[in-house]
Design a protein around this nucleic acid. Structure first.
Lengths: 202, 202
DNA sequence: AAAATTCTATACCGAGCGTTATGGAAAATG
DNA sequence: CATTTTCCATAACGCTCGGTATAGAATTTT
């Protein structure tokens, strides 16, 4: 049933689904799931409502595909951070990667995950749960990475890996809140510098 | 025109406006401005819609009064923090006060300000602007307090007061995001401990 | 060329939103 | 006790929402 083969009968689609999905992502990213109306989405995507429903199912399915795209393209820095050789490198890559992702000139400011982690209407309940679950898995990976750093002596033995991972995620989320509410990127830059200056050395 | 004198003609109001406002605050706090429908509000407040409009004006005016109440009652720890003798005391009071305020057993989890700082629909645009402005003024006060600490030698001279204030506010906001999305308070407690362990000593 | 299939576009649907008008009951004033 | 004022309750208004049915245009395969 999936459009596995583009060589199908009938009139072919007149728009690029990937491009339309990218446009939808930008709408969700800047307005949130509930704040993004179907009219907003179709206008940004350049298609009509029936085309959207035929191509993506419904609003929630469209959001899920946009979320996958976001995680694959905009959250790559989290996966890269896990590969850094030192715990400080992990933290630095997380902070600087998040800063870049949240303050791009061509993309909406802020973080799609943060927007949907805070409570809104009842219709977005399952979406919030999904976003929160994805963040929890990322956070668990960071906890494991910091635990390894403690075991290897890369981090002082007296620090709590879970607490530290929780803290750095809180900083990332706070950065998302601030970036999404108009705080200029220079201010966020100084925040990142302050955070790295405080990082437990040696 | 204000109900300055309770000794007025006609039938008196049958409900307590303060109590109703407190109930409305809890609804806004847990569902957000847009997520809180008039039906949600009137049910929680125990009054009907015309009574609400007669007593508070409209939904936005009700929110503003609830926001004032929130700031006066639940954000007292921020004003108290400014009076702490040391910068570390300020930070500790902020972090522990926020943790207590955001994880109370009898109140909604999370932070009313954070909820409305992230983008949602267009109707909440002015509300977001108001909340963001109030936070900015609090943040500016913390910057000034940290600057004083640097001048007094309470903080190392090489640190940036604005960056540090921005960082601690990001932690508070991240705490709000996490508390509002189900992270248990013990985990947030360990995050606070980790943050204070990293605080620039001496 | 003809038939079949899938596209796009317009209009509509039921539901929920914030808000307000209408009516009747209740309490204070004179 | 009568009047007046303000309350409460029901219902309706205009609007937007997500989602869909219908119909016509366009491009494929047979």
């Amino acid at each position: 049933m999936e459009n596995a083969l583009p060589a199908c009968k009938g009139r072919p689609r007149e728009f690029c689904t990937d491009q339309a999905l990218a446009s939808a992502l930008r709408v969700f990213w800047s307005k949130g799931y509930e704040g993004a109306s179907m009219a907003d989405l179709t206008e940004a995507m350049g298609i009509t409502k029936p085309s959207l429903y035929a191509a993506f199912g419904n609003k929630e399915a469209l959001f899920h595909k946009a979320l996958d795209l976001y995680e694959a393209e905009k959250l790559a820095y989290i996966r890269e951070a896990l590969d850094q050789p030192t715990a400080r490198g992990v933290a630095e890559h997380l902070l600087r990667g998040a800063l870049k992702a949240m303050t791009s000139q061509w993309e909406p400011k802020g973080c799609l995950g943060v927007i949907h982690s805070v409570a809104c209407g009842a219709e977005a309940e399952s979406i919030k749960a999904e976003v929160v679950a994805r963040r929890a898995s990322s956070q668990a990976a960071i906890v494991g990475r910091f635990q390894r750093a403690v075991d290897e002596g890369d981090l002082p033995a007296n620090i709590d890996p879970a607490g530290l991972a929780n803290l750095i995620f809180a900083v990332l989320q706070g950065m998302g809140v601030q970036a999404g509410s108009g705080v200029p990127s220079e201010q966020l830059q100084s925040m990142v510098d302050a955070a790295l200056a405080l990082w437990p050395s040696r």
